[in-house]
């Protein structure tokens, strides 16, 4: 458990040999030194990364066809991106507060993050509204359709994040968990927030550059 092994070392073990048996008997039954929630989140992020990558592949493939018409980039998208950046930064700071057991600061941090997440969603809705008012429907060009699709999938991820943020915040306020446990949960939410920021930056960058 203590020593880190490469995957190749691990897969070439001969579990029937005496010295390997003795080493194996010491094993604690855990592969990586992470809480199950943290590893779970990483697994989900990996699957989610595949999902977004495939969307990007589809986008790049479809882009090459002659009927492609680029969409305008409303300035509000920049504003929303800003909100997302700030919320990520705030969350990062909040995890530090939580580690140092600043209860009130952590609580305010969590509230602020939630507020920003909701603002982002509302901001995205306004962008949709503006675009539709100016005639950029999903049916009028596939570039628009991709925009609506990307923003929806990303927003669904955010909504999932908000659900877990809500659960974590209420547990934090009720103080129903041990310190390590609640910090573990806050960390996880923060990592997820950074992940969604990264996803958004990639998607936004892709749509800007094409």
């Amino acid at each position: 458990m203590s020593k880190k092994k490469s995957i190749f070392q691990l897969l070439t073990e001969k579990p029937w040999e005496q010295d390997q048996i003795e080493a194996d008997n010491e094993h604690q039954g855990q592969t990586v030194n992470l809480t199950k929630q943290k590893l779970g989140l990483r697994t989900l992020m990996a699957a989610s990364t595949v999902l977004f990558s495939l969307f990007i592949v589809a986008y790049s493939d479809r882009m090459l066809v002659h009927d492609w018409r680029n969409m305008p980039e409303p300035w509000l998208l920049w504003f929303n991106t800003g909100i997302l950046v700030i919320s990520s930064l705030v969350f990062h700071q909040t995890t530090k507060y939580a580690k140092n057991e600043f209860f009130d600061k952590t609580k305010n941090g969590l509230y602020f993050v939630g507020f920003l997440a909701y603002s982002f969603l509302i901001g995205q809705l306004i962008v949709w509204y503006q675009l539709m008012n100016t005639g950029y429907y999903a049916t009028s060009n596939v570039a628009n359709a991709f925009f609506y699709l990307f923003t929806t999938i990303h927003a669904l991820h955010i909504i999932g994040g908000i659900y877990f943020w809500g659960k974590t915040t209420s547990k934090f306020i009720k103080k129903s968990l041990k310190k390590e446990e609640i910090n573990n949960l806050i960390d996880i939410c923060a990592v997820y927030w950074h992940f969604l920021l990264a996803v958004w930056l990639v998607l936004f960058g892709l749509m800007l550059s094409s």
Partner: peptide
């Protein structure tokens, strides 16, 4: 499936009995 798969992966990786290495 994604919800189930998450469980299978984490359980196999993290919740094995003592002495249960991957190659066992």
């Amino acid at each position: 499936f994604t919800m189930g798969g998450l469980n299978y992966i984490i359980t196999v990786l993290q919740l094995r009995a003592r002495g249960m290495t991957l190659m066992r």
